[in-house]
Amino acid sequence: MNSILQPRPFRQTMHRLMNLLIFKVNQLGDNVVFLPLVQQLAAHFPHWRITVMTSPAAAPLYEVACPEARLLSFNTQDFNSSWKNPARLTRLLRITRALKPDTCLLGNDQGNAAHLLARLSRAALCVGPHVPERKLCFLLHHREPLIETDSAARQNWRIAQAMLARLGHPALPDAIPAPDLSAFGREGHVAIAIHAGASRAYKRWPLERFIALANKLADTHPVLWFDQNEAGEEMLAPRIRRVTPGSLHDFIRHLAGARHFIGNNSGPMNLASALGIPGTIFNGPSRPNWDPMWHSEKFDLLRDAALACQPCDLFSRPVNHCQNTFHPMACMDRWSVDEVHQRVLARLE
């Protein structure tokens, strides 16, 4: 075997320190559904040294809710493209090798850079998803097949169970708990919380409709609006409480006190699901495996089975723009302010 790929000798790690390096450099929502796995590994194997590579947006999740894990954060785009940039890849490889991982665990959505760094880290075991579209998937020692109908949380759980089996350790419980976010606290405002954002434009219900909906709801209920720093927000009624959280900690604390959440299928929705906050969600292009992972009975998912284009996101990745050229954004345009207003009121009864 080429010496650059030669792993260090495998160590038995049941009752001794093991260095586990986890790759999860991605969006906030992807890490919300991954967090319970890291929390469970830290709880079941307190003698392990766990390091999580993640994004700056997601790092506070682990800092507050899983302080046992060491964190390294990287810009997602820079990290994922590093396999095409020798200088950047070399810097990342130095960091990775300095950790001296015994095992590398890759999340279900990690790209070629994570695969290459894991294998070049000289870890004795690299475990991740089997995604044929990943050019460097073959570098992993174990590639766990992904089941398309599984939730994203379940897919990651299966990968971790495969890792534990390869290490000869007992499996985690089959039930996936919601992440414990209690350390973030809770502001008891009991308002309807509205977050109009999402990481990609084609995943958003129009801002002007969110604003009109907020104004109608504010006639009868307290409304908390998370500012998006958009020009149209000056049309919000003065009675609506507007907040601009200075950190993820502040955002979660405000969200935890909500009576109901309204938003797109995005990171805040996953946080609401974890917190058990009922919600009305514009599902847009998202696949069913991104439905709320926990407390799903509390959510009204706005999607129309009659739309042949929905969902347009692929199993292995988002498509990044609307695929409907005849009626762009049909899955969002389908929902009027009046219809959503009535659906929310029905949920509040």
Score class of each variant (00 low, 15 high):
residue 301 L to A: 08
residue 317 R to V: 04
residue 258 A to V: 03
residue 58 A to H: 07
residue 318 P to T: 04
residue 254 H to Q: 06
residue 23 F to D: 03
residue 245 P to A: 09
residue 267 G to K: 08
residue 148 E to G: 14
residue 256 A to N: 02
residue 48 W to Q: 04
residue 249 H to D: 13
residue 276 G to Y: 15
residue 284 G to L: 02
residue 166 R to A: 15
residue 340 V to W: 02
residue 335 W to E: 01
residue 298 K to Y: 01
residue 331 C to S: 14
residue 288 P to M: 12
residue 168 G to E: 04
residue 135 K to F: 15
residue 185 G to V: 07
residue 331 C to R: 11
residue 300 D to P: 00
residue 145 P to K: 08
residue 252 I to F: 04
residue 172 L to K: 03
residue 47 H to K: 12
residue 136 L to I: 05
residue 175 A to Y: 01
residue 334 R to W: 00
residue 3 S to Q: 13
residue 271 L to M: 09
residue 51 T to Q: 07
residue 349 E to K: 09
residue 251 F to Y: 06
residue 72 L to K: 06
residue 218 A to N: 04
residue 48 W to E: 10
residue 109 D to A: 11
residue 283 N to I: 03
residue 69 A to G: 04
residue 333 D to W: 02
residue 39 Q to C: 11
residue 64 V to P: 02
residue 175 A to F: 01
residue 39 Q to P: 03
residue 152 A to H: 06
residue 86 P to F: 11
residue 173 P to G: 04
residue 307 L to E: 07
residue 129 P to G: 06
residue 197 G to S: 14
residue 145 P to D: 08
residue 272 A to N: 13
residue 111 G to R: 00
residue 137 C to W: 08
residue 196 A to H: 00
residue 294 W to K: 09
residue 338 D to F: 01
residue 313 D to G: 03
residue 15 H to I: 05
residue 228 Q to W: 02
residue 23 F to Y: 14
residue 268 P to F: 06
residue 323 Q to Y: 09
residue 5 L to V: 08
residue 196 A to C: 01
residue 264 N to W: 01
residue 76 T to K: 15
residue 331 C to H: 11
residue 334 R to L: 02
residue 87 A to C: 13
residue 298 K to R: 09
residue 251 F to C: 01
residue 324 N to M: 13
residue 102 D to W: 11
